[in-house]
Amino acid sequence: MKDLSLHILDIVQNSIRAGARNVGIDIREDTRANTYGITIKDDGCGMDAEAVKRVTDPYFTSRTSRHVGLGIPLFLQNAQQTGGDLQIESVPGKGTRIKAVFVHDNIDRPPLGDMPGVLMMLIGSNPAIEFSYRHSKNGQEYLFDTREVKEALDGMSLEEYQVRKYLKEMIQENLQELNAL
């Protein structure tokens, strides 16, 4: 994966396949503690303790079409390369939380990449799922929530190309401002 947003796109596919109705993506940058945390939380079907232990194994997958699943192993490897780590908590029937922490200034930490594009892709393709995105940097934060957006747009479909374009721009503006800090 070239950047962190693509990892997020990939990991959220697991949440979608787990039947999640709500997906939360939380990015916390702290340059003082030198951490770059990414948490992805869903209320999908969850996994038992045995499965949680095995998902970091490339030869484990819940899919039946193939016998390898590399999404989580690649994310873990990337975090570890910077000196960080990845944790998974899951409760069957309740949901799953994956938290990866990267070392912020490590040269191996990939850039965030096109997060607004990834968000709009996820939102536009999964109208039944509510997404929230929180991005904080040293205490300043930007929050995006599909519920709020839907309310503001008064029933206009987020699948519409034009709507997506505007939303993408809105997220981009806010992230740029956050990044300038």
């Binding site: 008064d154 709507v163 809105m170």
Partner: peptide, 21 residues
């Protein structure tokens, strides 16, 4: 104009609606 907040988005609603319809 730049869209930054939900309030800005609301202002652009009619513009969006015409494009969609």
């Amino acid at each position: 104009t730049k869209i930054k907040s939900l309030a800005d988005l609301k202002k652009m609603k009619s513009d969006l609606q015409s494009k969609i319809s």
